[in-house]
Each structure stands twice: as C-alpha cells, then as structure tokens.
C-alpha cells in the first residue's frame, strides 16, 4: 500500500506540470494575502482572460518548439499585432458574419506568415531563431506600411462581446480558449497522426525520415499552425483590449516561450504539451497581476518579473550536469 502511495508521490513530483501548478497555487494565496479583492469574480475573470490570450500564443509556440531542430517562433508577437490591426478592418453588414470572416481571415494571414517561416527554415536552411526574428520585423514593417502608422480601427461590438458576455461563470473568450485547448491537446497533438509524427520528427528527424515520414512538411506545418493560432490570438487580443495599436502584442513572443518552458516543455523538441503552456501562462499572468496590484512602478515590476523568471529557469530548466 505505502509502496503504491510512494510511487504515486514520485510520479506526481516527476510530472512536468507540478512546478507550474504549485506556482499558481502559491501565487493565488499570495495574491489573496496582499489584497482581499484578488480572488473576486471580476479579478479572476480578467486574469483568466489575459491567461487565455497568452495560452493561445503558447500553444503556437509549443507546436514549433516540439517540432525540434532548435525550433522557435519569434514572430508570434508580430503576427498577433498584425492580425489585431487588420482583423477588425473587415466590416460586413452583419456584425456576427464579419466576425466569422475575421476569424477565417486572421487564420489565413497568420498561416501565410508561418508558411514563409517554415519554408525559410526547412528549404532555405535559415536557423529558426533568425528566420522568425527577421520575419517579425518584416511583418511589423508590413503593418506600418499598410496602416500608414495610424491604427485607427474601431472594433465592432460582436468582437468586443467575446470579453464581455458570459457563458456560465466565465466569459466567452476564456470558454472558447479552454475548449480549444483541450481539443487541440487531445485530438490534434496526441491522437492525430500528424501530432504523433510531430513528436517523432522533433525527437529525431533523421530516424523519422528513414521511417518514411516527410519531416520537412511536418515541420513546415508546425510553423503554419503556429502562425494560424497566433493570428487567432491577435484577434482575441484586440477583442479584449477594445482598440488596436502598433506592435501591441510584441511582448507575447518571449512570454510565450517562457510559458511553454515553465509548463515543462524542453527546448530540444520531441516532447511537450499544450496544457503545460497554459499553466505556464497562468503563472506569468498571476505574477504580472500581483505586481500591478502592489502598485509598483513599471520599471520595478519588470525587474521583479525578470528575477522571478530567472529563479524559475534555475529550478526548472538547467542543463544536466556534465559530470554524472
């Protein structure tokens, strides 16, 4: 009996989600101690909302990181900023219909950028970090070019609704993201042939190729998927924020990487989950909210965020010792 119990304990400790879950619980308690309003419905709902958007970004990032070959998508923030600008420009007679068209349009837009990323990485052999960095400056430049630097877009009510109307206890946005997260995790990443190939390719491209898996396209599709999801995230962001600005999502790039890493995904590829990224996103948003609740100046906030992040990294993602 105790043996079994012990095993369960060890399994729990080994679980890659554990640090993120423990972290969020501690942060929630800490937040409650700091201010009584922290666990109010309003506050929690806004935390959930911000977490939802970062979760989307981290799903995108996780797909690319899992694809291996030092995969990393530094253009996620730029794609989100772009679709946040362009998405609301679509105006049809019915607001609901225009939101539907927006969704398709942002997915296509993001997917296109992802396709260029993927082709650059797989066919032109540019290192992912550099390829996606440069794409992010191209995409940002493109946004400025088209909008002439003046993002005067009004967001229609149907889109704004995703952050206002309730579905049961939560807002539409959070509900959609939670459902999407579970669906993508189970049916896309774990069960589908594509998801399984992605893990194999990310783990050992050579071996996957010899098995007859077309690893090039598997990896390219990971970038396309990341772009599409980031595009969708951008639309959610503008629906939440209410107004669009230039480069409004630039911070999401590195935050998404951090969220994925805190969620227990290794940067070496071939391993990882979307749900972990969501938990990582929750931790990051909780930290940010608590610091804001403490009324700190922006600089100090960023300093503390950085210190916490470094502490998490030191616990969570140290390379194995050279001497065993």
């Amino acid at each position: 009996m105790s043996q079994a119990k012990n095993n369960i304990m060890i399994e729990t400790l080994k679980n890659s989600y554990t640090p993120a879950i423990v972290g969020s619980i501690l942060l929630l308690i800490f937040g409650r101690v700091l201010s009584k309003g922290f666990l109010s419905i309003n506050n929690i709902s806004s935390i959930l909302m911000m977490t939802s958007i970062l979760t989307m970004a981290s799903i995108a990032q996780a797909a690319v990181i899992i694809s291996g070959d030092s995969g990393l998508d530094m253009s996620i923030g730029a794609i989100m900023s772009m679709t946040a600008l362009f998405g609301p420009m679509i105006v049809l007679q019915s607001e609901g219909a225009s939101v539907a068209v927006m969704v398709i349009a942002v997915i296509v837009m993001g997917g296109m950028v992802g396709l260029i990323n993927g082709i650059g990485v797989q066919f032109l052999k540019v290192v992912p970090l550099v390829m996606t960095l440069i794409m992010s400056s191209v995409v940002n430049g493109f946004s400025i070019f088209i909008t002439k630097g003046q993002p005067a877009v009004s967001v229609n009510d149907a889109l704004l609704g995703i952050s206002k109307q309730l579905v049961g206890p939560v807002r539409i946005l959070s509900a959609i993201v939670i459902i999407l997260l579970v669906l993508l995790e189970v049916f896309f990443l774990r069960k589908s042939n594509y998801g399984r190939s992605l893990f194999l390719v990310g783990n050992n491209t050579n071996a996957a190729n010899l098995c007859g898996i077309n690893s090039k396209w598997v990896i390219i599709f990971a970038y396309v998927f990341a772009g599409a999801i980031a595009g969708l995230a951008g639309l959610m962001l503008v629906g939440y924020a209410g107004t669009a600005q230039m480069n409004m999502a630039s911070s999401y790039t590195m935050l998404s990487v951090a969220a994925v890493v805190i969620g227990g995904t290794k940067l070496t590829g071939g391993k990882g989950t979307f749900i972990g990224g969501a938990l990582g996103a929750l931790v990051l948003i909780l930290i940010a909210t608590i610091l804001q609740a403490l009324n700190m100046v922006a600089g100090l906030r960023s300093l503390i965020q950085g210190v916490i992040l470094i502490a998490i990294l030191m616990v969570n993602s140290r390379a194995p010792k050279l001497r065993q």
Binding site: F199, L200, N203, A207, G270
Partner: peptide, 13 residues
C-alpha cells in the same frame, strides 16, 4: 541514436 530510436518517446510510439 542517429537513425533509429526516438529517445524521448515510449516503446509503443
């Protein structure tokens, strides 16, 4: 290691 196994995946996979 180079051409055969997927070291991060389980036996079934």
């Amino acid at each position: 290691e180079r051409d055969g196994t997927f070291s991060e995946r389980n036996l079934t996979e």
